[in-house]
């Protein structure tokens, strides 16, 4: 391990393979971890935003705090007015105003409405869209997303798997060079690679409609169907291809969707060949979705599940080290 690789990591220039190497390296030895921690701390401490950016960050940060304090103070002011009224009515209203005054709310300025991602790695990259949809980008793939009155639009070049958050009021449209794919909440894969003559759409769950560039409808797909489309020849081929394991096969991601904690633990037990025990569980009936890279360690996946569910899970029958 050399410092140059570590600095590349800090600069965001590492591939996922290299990040994996670094993760293993810091776990080998406490001294390694402290070394990277120190480099990282120094990195963040010396990097100063440009003068203008620093100023605007300070001003908007301060504006956020200032306005919320003023809001709190104003509400306390009206609280005093109410207290001077008849005691019975005031008692009921005090409760309501106190609650309102302590609700801090989240965020300050609205986030910008359009986003772009690019995955240059040979391994998949997972992203979460602002509407909570999950997308995995294949190698050499770019995706842009924006959300507006007419719906949510994602433009794709390459291959990606979508797990779209349900929103009946806002259609989700994926645009590629040849197709418009419209969905409302569903799981599907889209492949539109410039060097390939055909586009391919595979549906796992839900339903999608495909249209061409001039918005002319081509077909509706049902789960388990895969469409291959060649725009120049207006050629469409639909076949029954079970797509349930596309996430695993093409993206190296294991996906446990909508499972209770017990179901998740059983699946992990089976996959990793280790016995697991739930030592505490917040809610037996709650369902969760867990996605992890197939070469992740069991300990890391368990940690993710514990954080997600507020439970504690033990690995039983550990080998002696």
């Amino acid at each position: 391990m050399n410092d140059d690789l570590l600095i590349s990591y800090l600069a965001g220039e590492c591939s996922q393979e290299q990040e994996k190497q670094i993760l293993e390296w810091i776990r080998e030895d406490e001294a390694n971890r402290r070394h990277l921690a120190e480099l990282s701390a120094l990195w963040h401490a010396v990097r100063r935003p440009e003068e203008g950016e620093a100023m605007s960050s300070l001003l908007s940060g301060f504006a956020g705090v200032d306005s919320r304090i003023n809001l709190q103070e104003a509400r306390k002011g009206s609280l005093r007015k109410w207290l001077s009224c008849a005691a019975g009515i005031a008692a009921v209203l005090v409760g309501g105003i106190l609650l309102a005054g302590h609700f801090l709310g989240k965020g300050q300025a609205a986030p910008s409405d359009s986003y772009v991602w690019f995955n240059p790695d040979s391994s998949a990259m997972q992203i979460t869209l602002p509407d909570k949809s999950q997308v995995w980008l294949g190698s050499n793939t770019s995706l842009s997303y924006c959300s507006g009155e007419s719906g949510r639009t994602a433009s794709l070049k390459g291959e990606a798997f979508f797990d779209v958050a349900k929103d009946p009021s806002k259609a989700f449209i994926v645009k590629t060079s040849d197709l418009r794919i419209k969905v409302y909440g569903t799981r599907f894969n889209v492949r539109s690679i410039p060097s390939e003559t055909y586009s391919e759409v595979s549906l796992v769950e839900g339903s999608v409609s495909l249209a061409d560039n001039s918005e002319r409808n081509i077909i509706f797909l049902t789960p388990g169907q895969q469409a291959k489309y060649v725009a120049e020849e207006d050629y469409l081929q639909v076949s029954e291809v079970p797509a349930d394991n596309i996430l695993l096969v093409r993206y190296g991601v294991e996906s446990l969707k909508d499972m209770t904690l017990q179901e998740i633990v059983s699946a992990l037990s089976l996959s990793f060949g280790r016995e697991l025990r739930i030592s505490s569980c917040a809610d037996v009936n709650e369902r969760y979705t867990v996605n992890y890279p197939k070469d992740a360690s069991l300990e890391d996946v368990i940690w993710t599940v514990e954080v997600l569910s507020g439970s504690r899970i033990e690995i039983v029958n550990q080998d002696n080290k």
């Binding site: 996922q16 990040e19 993760l23 921690a37 997972q126 979460t128 996605n291 890391d300 940690w303 954080v307």
Partner: peptide
Amino acid sequence: MVRHRYNSWYSAQINRELSVCY
């Protein structure tokens, strides 16, 4: 960490490991 927002799985784990040092 759980939402894997901008980070890859691995850099999220790295952040988690380093956090105790801060």
